[in-house]
Amino acid sequence: MSNKSLFIKSGFVRAPLQNGVGRYVCQLQRIVLKFCKSHGGSRGIRDFIEQDLVDFAKNSPGTVVYLKPRRHRSPVIVAEYLNGDRVWMSVHQKTHSEITKWIENLRTQQGDVAATRLRKYQYTDHPSIQGPWTPFTFKDPELNTAVLPDPKFGANNRLPVSATEKLRLLFEKQKLSDVQTAE
């Protein structure tokens, strides 16, 4: 995590209000395009308004589009989402195609996603499927019918091989190979 993202609000990958379980609701509720009618910096957004805005408004009737001409100020897009987020974006000197892509991005995202740091890339309501562990969870079913004490289950095979035992094994292996070479 970089130093910059320390103060960013954190969150998980979630759909707002179980969106899509019932029906899909476009999360962009209104968009305000602020621009200047004469300045060169607003050229791209003026082109967008002239050519694509009517189609955009027709295709997304759930979004309210406001136009706000302001004299001699740089162009800005403000998008407001259903969860209360507000995204402010400067489009100064951006071209028509760039603005089209940015607006498509604003339309399809679910809130101010760029301003949240994802704590994880996945999310679950049920972190465990099989429930909490108990000493009986992975018990060997053979134990149910065994008569205890049983050397099979009572054998102490949990300790690692001791150094003496290792040496003895090595010695016996060597003896075997000696016999083989003699033959």
Binding site: V25, R30, V32, G62, V64, Y66, K68
Partner: peptide
Amino acid sequence: EWNLEAELYAFSKRL
């Protein structure tokens, strides 16, 4: 930049 009529229209269309 507020138009109640447009907002109500968009509300019903959104749902």
